[in-house]
Design a protein around this nucleic acid. Structure first.
Lengths: 228, 228
DNA sequence: TTAGAAAATGGACAATCGTCCATCAAAATC
DNA sequence: GATTTTGATGGACGATTGTCCATTTTCTAA
């Protein structure tokens, strides 16, 4: 077992990272000073230098941690999904729009880091990483759909669907950032599935319900109030 | 005539705003200090307090200026477009993705301010304003399209199309922010028009060309290399 | 129980931040 | 040309920034 010593050490490391994320979410990056961080963490001034070698490294570690958390959550969600590509995509979309992932805190953190990513190279990388992994997951699913459907321009269609879905999700996050009060998760999901249903009518319907083996295009406009 | 006095005054005001935007685009908000600003503007330290009463007000004015510039550009573009709603929407989409609007500098500025908008109330407002005006323009056009087409759920379709188009544009901007090198304007436009063609096959085609009075769905995949 | 090692503390430190004002320069008015 | 008015200057100022280290505290191993 890890000694009490190392255990405390790790605990303090995480306390610092958590303090940074809390501060960034509440006050923004520009007001996240060393004083603010150590006050939130309830630790002494020297801890930052001791554990991370400097504030910049700590902020970078916090960005990385936040990114991992986001992605791990999405992956966990994916494992509860079925094997069909439709199910996987629907799970990603709904997961990315769920309250657990898309909430005030995460959005604030995400956009704060994005805004600074121009300079801090390391922070930009964490955005890239997330982006890359997520893109891969979605693209895999669409590739399977396209292959099954025998679409003419297969690779192009899968790429466009991936690109479009990601762009729509990004746009919805921005929407949430700017209008957290009037944001409507169901509406956001509906619009994305409208896009997917238009591209793959045999696999998605407007209501967002999966239609595994049928080929109809039209669907009732009334959404079933089944999820949060 | 404005006296030489007032003329210089205004010129210096703009120089300060320009210096802020340059610095934000190049170095980011956190490195945009008073010293940095006055050095870029080639003016003296006291000017910021004299003209704006403080750094925060200057930054806010710069954000406002940038927003106005963006929007005026888009409006000017719109006036060169025809009256048909399809033309107006296509103009907005292509304009928003054009090099004049969507470029490294503007993206950096835009996302830097977004990242800090959580705290600086005034900066958040400028995002809201832009968003509101743009949304209104797009929604008007889609409302007309929906009315002409006699779509069943008219208001819902127009709202969804507006929301989806805006979200896609936002997503494309994010894409550009994260991957300025491999970003492809034509691909971005194609995906958005794919979405629009799916929703309104009588008004938009996949290639992005407007089809004013026809009702066909399929279109050649080869895009005409006509715009930047 | 003691000696050693490692972690944590908190203040000193130089550097930089944004604000403000006494002073100066120049345009406008008489 | 003399005087008033106003924009512009740049350094002084206190506050705050992040870094770092001498010291203390705490856990571990002998």
């Amino acid at each position: 077992m890890a000694g009490k010593r190392e255990q405390n050490r790790e605990q303090n490391r995480l306390a610092l990272i958590g303090a940074v994320l809390d501060s960034v979410a509440e006050k923004g990056i520009s007001e996240t000073s060393v004083s603010e961080i150590i006050q939130r963490a309830g630790l002494s001034r020297g801890m930052i230098h001791l554990h991370f070698g400097g504030k910049d490294n700590l902020v970078q570690a916090a960005a990385h941690h936040s990114s991992e958390e986001y992605y791990d959550g999405l992956e966990a969600l994916l494992q509860t999904a079925g094997d069909s590509p439709q199910e996987r995509i629907e799970m990603i979309v709904r997961g990315d729009l769920s309250e657990r992932v898309l909430n005030q805190r995460n959005v604030n953190i995400w956009y704060a880091f994005r805004g600074e990513s121009r300079n801090r190279t390391a922070i930009a990388e964490h955005s890239d990483t997330r982006d890359g992994r997520l893109r891969g997951m979605i693209h895999n699913a669409f590739s399977r759909i396209v292959r099954e459907a025998g679409t003419p321009d297969a690779s192009g269609a899968a790429r466009d669907a991936t690109h479009g879905t990601l762009a729509l999700l990004e746009g919805m996050w921005t929407d949430f950032l700017l209008h957290p009060d009037r944001f409507d998760r169901k509406e956001a999901a509906r619009i994305i599935f409208r896009f997917l249903a238009a591209m793959f009518p045999a696999h998605f319907s407007l209501a967002g319900a999966i239609r595994p083996q049928q080929g109809q295009g039209a669907a009732p406009a009334a959404p079933a109030a089944s999820d949060s």
